[in-house]
Write a protein that binds this DNA or RNA. Structure first.
Length: 678
RNA sequence: GCCGACGUAGCUCAGUGGUAGAGCAGCGGUUUCGUAAACCGCUGGCCGGGAGUUCGAAUCUCCCCGUCGGCUCCA
């Protein structure tokens, strides 16, 4: 049996005796999804548990039907936790994966931290989707500052040069507990204590003087960890619960080669160049300001123009899709929100009541009660259904100050909301129709790839489990019927029903939550909605809530980043800019004005460059920086030639060519009318 | 809200105890030039706010406010 006081380099157990690289290949758990035996014990409770048990926070079924094995998306922390729980360490594969490399990098970082900060206690340190982290507590309440990262990284570099082996051993639970008690590592002791009696042995890894509770596997030695960069430090709650003490987490990224690391850093730089907050300022699209208040947005003329074009398209599509457009006020009597259940279920996101004539009013956090009142404004017959109300409805929700983020997370936003009221037998068709409608709209805006999630019953919910199961199967059925791949996101439904979420993938492959299609059998009940059936009886309609683009604010932010500010022609604030080569030649100025006039007559947004006196290259550069799709130079040469041809510069594709003005107008008109997304 | 970083001119930033700086933008002038930055000049700042330490604070300390990266939560 392994002993904790083994001499460096000694083989302390049968695992170690054979612990040379070249072990048989063992399956490596993916960092996100893994199969969980029903009732399996983990540190966060039995599995599968309710959504409050974080172990099973996001389980899914790996196939269809109840008999399919349940898989859990385990929080990154759990990886290490349940790795320890599994007892026997995993054997190393022939070829380490990126996950193994990053997990090893986390160990090495902890080793460096423990050397540089004696008394530091370490919690868990798993790989993540693009790197790794480790959580720490420093003695006497000290904290890391970002300046410490350079020192830690430097020490890691020294450990890399020493090519320290990752030495594995297996200890009995009691032995491991004693070891970590002696090392004054309470987090590890806690993990061991939570393993339960079923677990006899745990894995231990040693790197130099650093010892960690870990299942492994790891790279053979620290020499593999040359391409590592520590990124930032963050505060995190112990075991992810905000009632707990806050630890500090250091994030890093690790790659096999320097080149891969550089490429990763370049991707981050590209994301920064596309940041909608930066482009929003540079392109004068929108602003947020301290004076205005956090989470509130001002749409400037350029952004306002893009928004108008988006909204025009949206209205046109909805009218064509069988929706009726409606409008509703920003505040209403608070009683409406008591009836809807929001006061009970959504309170933490709602602003306080506002008193008018001594009666409480509520700034609206959602649009649904209004559409319900429109439904209730008259007796409805089965012949009227389905009824589809759509509205660009501005709502206000309280968000904690730390989560506000440009246009992507705000406190006041306009949802492109719709509510469908239908007969129970119509629900499947309506859900399917909405799904198709959404995917079609996304394609128009250049999002061909969409990830789809089915969110099921949360802990805090209205309605019977039976209703929920039926509703969930309707949603699932429509997705399957369309052969749409999806994932189940258990416990993530709203309080009134399950939902389908659609997340678009942008040009950088990032996922953004936009559409949500929510089944609701509780609001019709809360508001006592009815329709008269064919046989004259009273029936309760079913409701579907649907946001498509999500909110105008978020969608605009996503669009800006997706296109890096280079909007397709139909969305561009200025579609074509005319640049006079000589400002002081009246014939040239007249020609520029004439070209602008003809483009405008074709329905295009065209303008003359507003930089008189500047040189041509400067004017071109200025238009390029403002992401104007087409720039047309007109000069004395064109006037003298008099053949109505001009030079057109295509700033997105980089081409430059001569074209008759009439052809240019027609070409751009067509491109804009077709709403080409490229 | 919590951990960390940051807050200096419209924007990007330099300035770490001794008289507030640069580039770009803006304005004025010269230049009229054929596809990503002509030249000269000028304007512009209660250095986020408040309190303190000091002969003296953009600079050091404390408290607020805000922004950014995370945590938690979500459209």
């Amino acid at each position: 049996m392994c002993r904790r006081d083994w001499p460096a380099g000694a083989r302390c157990c049968r695992w170690h005796a054979s612990s040379r690289w070249g072990w048989p290949v063992a399956p490596i758990p993916k960092p996100s999804w893994r199969t969980c035996a029903k009732g399996a014990r983990t540190l966060r409770g039995d599995c599968p548990g309710s959504s409050s048990e974080r172990c099973c926070h996001r389980p899914r079924r790996s196939g269809h039907g109840d008999e399919a094995p349940v898989q859990c998306r385990v929080m990154p922390e759990d990886l290490v936790d349940d790795a320890a729980e599994a007892g026997a360490p995993l054997e190393a594969p022939q070829q380490p994966t990126l996950e193994i490399l990053r997990h090893s990098a986390a160990h090495l970082m902890a080793a460096a931290v423990v050397e540089l900060f004696p008394g530091a206690q370490y919690d868990v340190g798993p790989p993540t989707s693009d790197g790794f982290f480790y959580n720490f507590r420093l003695p006497r309440g000290a904290t890391f500052s970002e300046d410490d990262l350079a020192a830690i990284e430097k020490r890691m570099g020294q450990l890399v040069e020493r090519r320290l082996p990752f030495e594995r051993s297996v200890l009995g639970r009691g032995e491991a507990r004693a070891l970590f008690s002696e090392l004054d590592q309470p987090f590890k002791v806690d993990i061991i204590d939570r393993l339960g009696d079923a677990v006899d042995t745990v894995g231990i890894y040693r790197t130099g003087d650093f010892v960690d509770l870990c299942r492994g596997p790891h790279v053979p030695d620290s020499g593999w960890l040359g391409a590592v960069r520590l990124m930032r430090v963050a505060g995190v709650y112990w075991r992810g619960d905000e009632r707990n003490e806050q630890l500090q987490r250091i994030y890093g990224t690790a790659w096999f080669t320097r080149e891969e690391l550089d490429a990763h850093l370049e991707r981050l730089a590209e994301a920064e160049r596309r940041d909608h907050r930066r482009l929003g300022r540079e392109l004068d699209l929108f602003s947020v300001s301290e004076e205005l208040g956090g989470g509130l947005v001002l749409w400037h003329p350029n952004g306002g123009l893009v928004r108008s074009v988006i909204e025009d398209h949206w209205r046109e599509a909805h009218r064509g899709g069988g929706y009726d457009l409606v409008f509703s006020p920003h505040i209403a009597q608070r009683g409406l929100w008591e009836t809807s259940g929001h006061v009970d279920f959504f309170a933490e996101n709602m602003y306080g009541p506002l008193f008018i004539d001594e009666r409480p009013f509520q700034l609206k956090p959602m649009n649904c009660p209004f559409h319900i009142l429109i439904y209730k404004s008259q007796a409805r017959s089965y012949r009227d259904l389905p009824i589809r109300f759509a509205e660009l409805g501005t709502v206000y929700r309280y968000e904690r100050s730390g989560v506000l983020h440009g246009l992507l997370r705000v406190r006041g936003f306009t949802q492109d909301d719709a509510h469908i009221f239908c007969r129970p037998e119509q629900i499947e068709g309506e859900i399917g129709r909405v799904v198709d409608f959404c995917l079609d709209m996304f394609r128009t805006f250049g999002f061909a790839d969409v990830n789809i999630y089915l969110s099921t019953r949360p802990d805090k919910a209205q309605g019977s489990e039976e209703d929920w199961r039926r509703a969930e199967s309707v949603l699932e059925g429509q997705l399957r019927q369309r052969d749409i791949a999806y994932r189940v996101d258990p416990g993530a439904g709203t309080f009134y029903g399950p939902k389908i979420d659609m997340k678009v993938l942008d040009a950088l492959g990032r996922e953004w939550q936009c559409a949500t299609v929510q089944f609701d059998f509780t609001q019709p009940e809360n508001f006592q909605l009815e329709y008269t059936g064919e046989e004259g009886g009273r029936h309760r309609p079913v409701m579907v809530h649907r946001a498509l683009l999500g909110s105008m604010e978020r969608f605009f932010g996503v669009l800006i980043e997706h296109y890096a500010g280079h909007f397709p022609l139909w969305l561009a604030p200025v579609q074509c800019e005319i640049v006079p080569v000589q400002d002081d030649v009246p014939e040239v100025v007249a020609l520029a004005a004439a070209v602008v006039g003809r483009l405008r007559d074709a329905g295009l947004r065209a303008a003359v460059s507003d930089k008189p006196g500047e040189r041509l290259p400067k004017k071109i550069r200025d238009a390029e920086l403002r992401r104007v799709p087409y720039v047309v130079a007109v000069g004395r040469r064109d006037v003298e030639r008099g053949d109505d041809r001009v030079t057109v510069r295509d700033t997105r594709r980089g081409g430059q060519y001569e074209l008759a003005v009439s052809d240019l107008a027609e070409q751009l008109r067509t491109e804009a009318a077709e709403k080409r997304a490229d």
